[in-house]
């Protein structure tokens, strides 16, 4: 028996919109810890890890660990039928091949049940070790999205370099090149507008902009994005989900062939 009630149902809608283009099918895992997902894109270049902690739900019942294979495009279609203010409850049962999404209006005057078919997904689960990063950049998520979009119109890859001067985003394409530097800037009044750079060592890595631009679909989930970089490791682009958990995107760097 599974019953997860989320007052702020819009969070789940936003999570789906953030990952459905990167990953088409995935197993959602439900345990006492929370509702989670780990999945790679079809090219195995990027990985998304989502956690919505059980404490963040209004009601969380998960009698035993359950894995639900879901086509994310279909789930997104169903969640789009929920109103922006609706409360969403996810219901499932052991041994059935469906999951039900229940949408309740704030005033409780409209209740909808959408039943979706589950599927068997043979997914690989990867162990992600804790790592020390050479540099961690925290910046407004909208600013990061803007940079990725702008650079994506010029080139295919972005070189992200962190030095004590700041964080530099560089691309080159057929039409020319572009270089954007963001310096550390702390805003006391609005900490979410700050750019904070923690650097242990300078680092410079190259990534495909197509993936970075896909990650920025999570911008609506958090005002701040954290970018963790180390040579020889995938970059982690993390959006915290208010008081509930996070969505982390891992992207393998490009190297000189």
């Amino acid at each position: 028996m599974l019953e997860l009630r989320l007052i702020q149902g819009s969070l789940l809608k936003k999570v789906l919109e953030a990952i459905k283009d990167l990953v088409t099918e995935a197993n959602f895992d439900c345990s006492a810890t929370g509702f989670s997902l780990q999945a790679m894109d079809s090219s195995h270049v990027a990985l998304v890890a989502l956690l919505l902690r059980s404490e963040g739900f209004d009601h969380y019942r998960c009698d035993r660990n359950l894995s639900m294979g879901i086509n994310l495009n279909n789930m997104s279609k169903m969640l789009r039928c929920a109103g922006p203010e609706d409360i969403i409850t996810i219901k499932g049962d052991d041994g059935t091949d469906t999951v039900t999404f229940m949408f309740e209006s704030q005033k409780q005057d409209k209740i909808s049940d959408f039943e979706m078919k589950l599927m068997d997904i043979d997914s690989e689960h990867l162990g992600i070790p804790d790592a020390e990063y050479q540099a961690i950049v925290r910046m407004p998520s909208a600013e990061f999205a803007r940079i990725c979009k702008d650079l994506g119109s010029i080139g295919d890859t972005v070189v992200i370099s962190v030095t004590k001067e700041g964080v530099k985003f560089f691309t080159r394409g057929d039409v020319g090149s572009a270089n954007i530097v963001c310096r550390q800037n702390t805003s006391v009044d609005k900490p979410e507008d700050s750019t904070v750079i923690e650097m242990n060592e300078p680092v410079s890595l190259t990534f495909a902009l197509r993936y970075m631009n896909s990650f920025t679909k999570a911008t609506t989930l958090s005002e701040v994005v954290t970018i963790s970089l180390s040579s020889e490791l995938p970059v982690v682009v993390e959006y915290k989900i208010a008081e509930m958990g996070y969505i982390r995107f891992y992207l393998a760097p490009k190297i000189e062939d």
Partner: peptide
């Protein structure tokens, strides 16, 4: 020429 690496090169299977 640049080569795209895969995630599984960095993270091991559970």
């Amino acid at each position: 020429k640049q080569k795209q690496q895969t995630i599984s090169r960095f993270f091991s299977h559970d």
